[in-house]
Design a protein around this nucleic acid. Structure first.
Lengths: 202, 202
DNA sequence: CCTATTCACATACGTAACGTATGCCAATTG
DNA sequence: CAATTGGCATACGTTACGTATGTGAATAGG
């Protein structure tokens, strides 16, 4: 056992992040007591302040973790898709699906922005946006998407719409029916990005 | 003086709402101390709890007020516009412009949703959405907009995109340039809603 | 192998803010 | 003019955050 030290530290960090993630995702950031969820991890706030500085710092760490997972899932879906445009649409759909999960919705789309400000300004997060932006750029070069728009800007707008879409489905009485309506409307909006002459996909 | 009573009460409420609105809009909801901003209105938390029940209740009142103002501004712009489609686009632009104001952005798009949940579920707010939805419905009947989508759903999605658009502009180093890019991308998305001349797609 | 130092984490404390319970005074009602 | 309502302030208890300090184990150095 030459490394029990580093391992213990990593484990402590992981436990804190996991406990906080659960608390933030269910109870919500503001209502989550640091005493409570550190205790649920078998620790105290001392460890928390040592590793993350303050409550916000811990939230940042949680967000970074979730963002990494989201990016991984997006990229996995990305790998299989016939056309690049389809690929792009799939990415958006996956994004909406992920946003349906209460934990992601709460932390990434509600409490996160409220506590840390505009997600576009987050240092570590939004790997998904990067991916979407890249694909939009490629689609422009291929002449599939109109060239007049800024890829990252478009990605962010679509992102905002996705988040709304997810919330609408998640809060619906009839998620099935709502999902259909939302996805239809969403894809319709995406059509606006296509160059007119030849809308051949989807 | 048969009404000094009612007037005083209304004035107290108005003062509390105004003070809270300022505090929430600048300091932010979570960081705004009730003791502080009630004192700045020459009152105490006693009045606040009497009229609004709790901090959330006050936030709701503030939101209702802002929402009313936003709806009024939207409707005013609405009154002058050559075509209904242009009217609709103007509405969206106005929405983005309003979202540029820090107070509106902070209260309506960040703290509001974080504290009170999905804006779509707010009882009193979102008069703007109603307006946009109505116009979309009319546009569908006129055959300008594709008939396959649900108007309110579309309005919400556009709303989400608008909020992103505004944040992007507001946080930009170069608001002028960013604004151009964002509005271009935004209008491009809206194009997706239009019925296309050629009958092949959709 | 022994000592010194680092550092991960816990404990203890001060402070600020929220919500409730209570009290008071002015205005309305009869 | 007496009684009562209710608008608002005051006082209090509770909770949660952040800091300052302490401790013990693991590493580093000789």
């Amino acid at each position: 056992m030459h490394r029990p030290r580093k391992e213990m530290i990593a484990e402590t960090r992981a436990k804190l992040i996991a406990a906080a993630r659960h608390a933030f995702g269910t109870t919500g950031y503001a209502e989550a007591s640091m005493d409570d969820f550190t205790a649920s991890a078998g620790l105290t706030r001392g460890a928390l302040y040592h590793h993350f500085g303050d409550k916000k710092g811990l939230l940042q760490a949680v967000i970074a973790q979730i963002d990494g997972e989201m990016a991984a899932r997006i990229n996995e879906v990305a790998s299989r898709a016939p056309t690049r445009w389809q690929h792009f649409v799939d990415e958006c759909s996956t994004y909406i699906e992920m946003a349906l999960e209460p934990e992601i919705q709460r932390i990434m789309f509600r409490d996160g922005p409220a506590v840390l400000g505009d997600p576009a300004q987050w240092p570590n997060a939004s790997a998904c946006i990067v991916s979407m932006t890249d694909h939009l750029t490629a689609l422009q070069e291929e002449g599939v998407v109109v060239s007049s728009l800024d890829p990252e800007t478009a990605s962010r707008l679509i992102n905002g719409a996705s988040s709304q879409a997810a919330q609408r489905i998640a809060n619906s009485d009839d998620p099935e029916a709502t999902s259909k309506k939302v996805v239809t409307a969403f894809k319709q909006l995406l059509e606006g990005l296509l160059k007119k002459p030849d809308p051949q996909s989807n």
